[in-house]
Design a binder for these strands. Structure first.
Lengths: 133, 133
DNA sequence: ATCATTGCAAATCTTTTGCACACCA
DNA sequence: TGGTGTGCAAAAGATTTGCAATGAT
């Protein structure tokens, strides 16, 4: 592992996440960080998202639309509710990782590193709009 | 919604899933179905995977590598353990969708359609190989 | 006959990468 | 200085789409 350097770009990307404690796709980060550094390249954004994820500063999740989203990994452990209507994501603080699940995993000789729980459905807003669904 | 027609291609794709009750990426389906229909096109495979998923015959999941996998939706409800070493997937039959989680979701006005629970880690095989990790 | 479906190829979208130059330690 | 990081543009990989021809009902 080479040592990470502190560059203007890297700092600006982390600043984006500190100001937007939410699930950001690479494009989102790109457009937000360009407010501070207009000439930053999308490639740099991707490279840093990857690096920062490997460092453990960010947490990467691939959502059902096939796009990866990132968030600060320092946040409380939580899970996601994804709205199938508007694609918005709401956090769930309850963690469903139960003792039964843990036992089944151990029984298989599997070593769990991390896990992810996602609920897909429709948020209040979209339920009202789509009441004809 | 137009009415679905029963084509040779569509039947062959379903046959692939009936013979391989597992998580198949579009490429996998493509190469398997070409054994029966060598001139089938990849576009047709994608279109049918999408159609069949919307019909509820298949269930689509996007894995962390950004590729979508499909499986028969008639199978028992289950979840996934993904090995970070060899990328193999093992099913978990325990479902962690607890009453507490359900309550939190309802409290947000969210209507849950389906959910996904994934555990990432290392399978027995990879743990032995990588005992220096 | 009608209209869903197909094959083919081109297009799209997200992400990755090669390369020469810039910049942090 | 030396090697990491950046900008730019091209490449790669997965998926989607336009179009004319085919085939199911």
């Amino acid at each position: 592992m080479p040592d990470l350097r502190s560059t203007k770009q890297r700092r600006a990307i982390m600043a984006v996440f500190n100001q937007n404690k939410y699930h950001l796709a690479a494009e989102d980060v790109y457009s937000l960080v360009r407010e501070a550094i207009p000439r930053i390249s999308l490639g740099t954004v991707y490279r840093n998202l990857e690096t920062l994820s490997q460092q453990g500063d960010l947490f990467k999740t691939v959502f059902p639309d096939g796009k990866a989203r990132y968030e600060l990994s320092g946040l409380d452990h939580h899970h996601h509710m994804v709205c199938l209507g508007c694609s918005n994501v709401v956090d769930i603080s309850e963690c469903p990782f139960s003792q039964e699940v843990r036992e089944q995993i151990n029984k298989e000789g599997f070593e769990a590193i991390h896990h992810r729980f996602e609920v897909f459905g429709f948020c209040q807003n979209c339920r009202q709009k789509d009441s004809d669904r």
